[in-house]
Design a protein around this nucleic acid. Sequence first.
DNA 1: TAGAAATGGGACTGATTTGGTCCCGATTTG
DNA 2: CAAATCGGGACCAAATCAGTCCCATTTCTA
Lengths: 165, 165
Amino acid sequence: MFRINKLTDYAVVLLVDMARTQRVRAAHDIAAETGVPVPTVAKVMKALVRGGLVRSTRGASGGYVLARPADRIVMADMIEALEGPIAMTACVDHADDGCEREGFCPMAGHWNRVNHAVRRALVGITLADVAGSCHPPVWANRASQGSGTSTGPRDSGGAVYLASE
Amino acid sequence: MFRINKLTDYAVVLLVDMARTQRVRAAHDIAAETGVPVPTVAKVMKALVRGGLVRSTRGASGGYVLARPADRIVMADMIEALEGPIAMTACVDHADDGCEREGFCPMAGHWNRVNHAVRRALVGITLADVAGSCHPPVWANRASQGSGTSTGPRDSGGAVYLASE
DNA sequence: TAGAAATGGGACTGATTTGGTCCCGATTTG
DNA sequence: CAAATCGGGACCAAATCAGTCCCATTTCTA
């Protein structure tokens, strides 16, 4: 564990793509360019819109654009959009109203410390960082051939671009 | 996601307990004191031994002890013992020999940056920190009531101390 | 030496989560 | 009005996780 979801992985890839071509593009277009299956792109985009990272336009000639400049979108945003708040244990999810075992839970307060440290790290890297330092989209052609579900051994269950298989 | 496993959660609870009473204790003993089911304690302990955090003694009057002082066991150790290397995407697992897509992977290098930052945060908190700043084992009595030996109130969902769905 | 008490290493199963696809209503363009 | 597009779920298969159990091995003790 301690891995991000495959969908989150896709999200990053998609966002990088959008950061390059700054204009409204339909889901199927982005899908074609990145090699991610269309339905999956749609699913990821929904989450990104809900998370406020991407703006959508409906209707014919609609599509998606980044909601703000790439240097103002950070890793934490992307992960939170897809996976909810960054919280390493369940009890932190509703930390505000206080876990009922608070009084005697030996970990009280410590997970939060960890969470915040992790989050801080994740806020330090922007989409611009990721998209910028990078080769032209060579990977587009390569991707279109195999978007399959590589079901390998435990640690190879990765996404299209990042994992091996 | 971005959560640690329940088993890792247990591991921390168990380690805290061991940090308090620094002596060899059998799994069933630790189980009784923490309220974690015996088989689960056994499973977690196996991982902790493999990870080098805990030393085991076999045979009659055997059991487990911390392998080193509590202030030299850090969060990262605990998590890695239970969940393998801290790597947010699959490709980082074998990052050393280089992902074959390295040349064109848009994320090349960036996940590692994230991983290292996260790991750094996790190295900053020791077991002593967690075990020290904490109430006496009040939770022991609470635990002993509901947890016979192997069949406790398991349906309550979540780890005994930390979670709660 | 024999027996009891522990750990070690898996196998196994049910429950949960994740990944991926699809459908249909709402919205906009032309 | 028709075509194109997003929005929100429903749905299912596959993978993973949690929890239990079994048996071999090791060691202490009587």
